[in-house]
Structure formats: C-alpha cells, structure tokens
Design a protein around this nucleic acid. Sequence first.
DNA 1: GTGCGGTGTTACTTACGGTAACACGCAGTC
DNA 2: GACTGCGTGTTACCGTAAGTAACACCGCAC
Lengths: 218, 218
Amino acid sequence: MDTTQRTEQQRSADRRRRELLEAADRVVLRDGPQASMNAIAAEAGITKPILYRHFGDKGGLYAALAKRHTDALLASLRAALDAPADRRERVEATLDTYLAAIEARPQVYRFLMHPAEGSQSGDQSADQGFDVGKHSAPLLRRMGEELATVIEERLDLGPGTQQLARVWGHGIVGMMHAAGDWWLGERPCTRAELVRGLADLLWGRLAAAGDKVGGPGF
Amino acid sequence: MDTTQRTEQQRSADRRRRELLEAADRVVLRDGPQASMNAIAAEAGITKPILYRHFGDKGGLYAALAKRHTDALLASLRAALDAPADRRERVEATLDTYLAAIEARPQVYRFLMHPAEGSQSGDQSADQGFDVGKHSAPLLRRMGEELATVIEERLDLGPGTQQLARVWGHGIVGMMHAAGDWWLGERPCTRAELVRGLADLLWGRLAAAGDKVGGPGF
DNA sequence: GTGCGGTGTTACTTACGGTAACACGCAGTC
DNA sequence: GACTGCGTGTTACCGTAAGTAACACCGCAC
C-alpha cells in the first residue's frame, strides 16, 4: 500500500487546512461572526469551493475554528483550575482567566458564542422539533462539562454528586458567560471587581446577606 | 387637526400589527428561529412588503416579537420574585418559573435566545469593533437588569451594593439560562432536581463542600 | 368626479451558502 | 514521450432569503 505517499499528501492537506484556518481567523477577528465564506476564501487567496472541500460546509469551518479557540481557552482554564491554591483562589483565577480571554479578543469570542447558524430546508418534521440546544454554542457546553468533571473529581457532595456536579458546571459557566458578556458591553467595573463579585456570589453571600432595612416587611 | 381620525387609523394599524405578531408567533413556534419573512407573511395571509412596512426589517419584527414574550416572562418572574415567602423559596420559585417557561415553549425560547442576526455591510470601522454584546440576546440583559433591581431593593450588601447587585443579577440569570439550555437538551434530571441543585449552588454549598477523600493532595 | 393616504400586490435586486463542471500540474506507468 | 489518475484550483451557476421599487385597489374628504 502507498502509505508513505498518503501521509505525505495528508501532511500537505493538513498544512493547507491550518493556513485556511488562520486566514479564517484573521477575517473573523476583523469582521466578526458574520464573516462570509467568500471573504474568508479571499483572505486565504483562494476561492470558495476549496473551503468547502476542506470543511464540508460553513458549520464545519466554524467547528474547526471553534475547536482551536475552545481548546486553547479550555487549556488555560484547566491550568487555573489545577493551580496549587485553595478553592476560592482557584475559582477566582478561573473566572479571571476566562474574562481576560474574552476581553483580549472580543470578536473571536462573539464568533464562538453567537455562531448565527440556521439549517434551511430539510427537517420539516411537523412536530415541534425538540432539538433546543443542539445549535447552541458548543463552547459553553464544553466548558460546562469540563468544569463538571473537575467538580466531580474534587468535591465530595454526597449522593448524587455526579449529577449535581454537572448542574453546577453548566450553571457556573453560564454565570461566568452572561456576566462577562454584560461586563464587556458596559464595562461597569474592573475585571478584578467582577471576579470578586462573582466569587462572592458562589461563596454564598447571597444567602448570608441581610434584608434591607425599611424594605417590604418580611 | 384630525386627531380623532389619526387615532382611528392608529388603532387599526395597531390591531393589524398585533395580528401580524400573532401570525409570526405561530410560525416561529412551528419553524423555530429560522422562520423566514415569507413564511410569516404567508401565515398572516399577506406578503412581505407589508411586514416591512410595519416592522422595518427582520430585526424590528424580532424585537417586537421578543418584547411580547420577554414582557410576559418577566411578569411571571417578577411575580415569583415578589411572592411572600422566604428568600430561598423565592429563588427556587423564580428558577422554576423560568425553567417551566422554556420547557413549555422551547421554540420560542430558542428564537429569543438565538436570534441569529447579522448586520451586513456598513460598519467598516477598521478598528476592532468593540461592540460585543450589542447583538446579544436582549432577553438575558433585561432579565439580568430586572433581577439586579430586585436584589438591590431587597438586600443589604453594604457599600457597593448597586454594582454588586448588577453583577449578581446578570450572573444568576446566566446561570439559570445556561443550566436551562443544557437541561432542555439532555434532560438529565427533573426540573425540581435542577432547581434544587442551582439553589444549593447559590446557597454556598460549593464553598461548604468538603474535598473528596483520596483526591490530589491539597 | 378627483386627488390622496393607506393597504395590498408582483417583480425585482442583492447577497450568501453551496455545488457542478471544467482546467491545470504533477506523480507514476507502459 | 504520450497516457492516466488525482489533487488543486477555477468560473459559473442554483436556491433561498432579505429587502425594495413600482404599480394597483379602495375609501374618503372636498
């Protein structure tokens, strides 16, 4: 069999693929999530069909591009999560890592979070298509699962630990995401203040806070 | 001046507008977020240009439709938030209200959360466009602000209450949203279990939990 | 009757995702 | 050296959907 030749071609294709992804990256960074396939192809110095040969469809390119950034971000988060410090410090470091990432490259972040996809004709299932979330940003899901794993590994939550860890993983990631999105749009405070506020929330300060004096009586 | 006539026409236009919104609602409920303007017009028994005369563009229709559902959902949430019960019960009721809503009408929920918009040419600001979040789902923002208001009214968080309340408002809403999205996709547990898990998280159980025995040593 | 504003239409343009069919270049083979 | 196969690239096209222009109908004041 012609394995050597195959691998040689494979390598070439992989290199090309990486080049294309880098071009796509530049365009997304410049144009945001609505970057068109034409624009990406032009940036790469080629034309559309090549993109389609490499990535199948726009979703494929999106997936490949997202995987790069998601992997990178997850690696950073994992490092923060695994740091040799107490739990509160680790949580704060993780929040800060995420927020720093979205602050540094908001366009990429937008692309990852709001892919703006839409499958046209095809699935005319007259029933109410219960596929909610299938099209949701995979980044959130992956981060949620990742965090769930860490929580489950580290914490002793008694019976039902596994399920509770997943709930918390997705919940905490969602908290981080929404707060980050809002913060990035309005910049109402420094990153450190935001981190501290969120960590306080996770640390039960909501439950511990006193009622406001003079409020509605209960 | 012909005020009476004006109002008469206005009323007619408003009625038409409401009819169109209801038709749009039905289509979105059936087809999900990728409902086309043509489909909506057909459902309403008219053609596209009328929709455009009423709503400007697709974003306008989206905004009007979203406002309806958002207002309705916010009213429910406010009721849960304002119920005469202790804080934990109110929090659980609020979470449950939201989750019940997205469970009942997932297509509408998807439409609200993933509008899949995209402004084509126009803003060619060569600089990195820092408008992240401008296109984000307004529902999350409104819920976040709403919750922030309630928190600020009710809780005494010492200095910086206002800012902290907003951080928490958006954070909690994001937690609710992401967990709900994940839950709706996978249905890993009952709604009540999810509510309880999230409330536990907000109640500081993350901070209180013990380290897992036999885990990495720290 | 005649202009005029509101409601409706058809028919079009533009843009984008995706594809088909064709063209070049470069191995290896007879 | 011509032939074949394959990967890489192209142009030119299709379908769909957003958005618009221009025209048609209708009720109503004057």
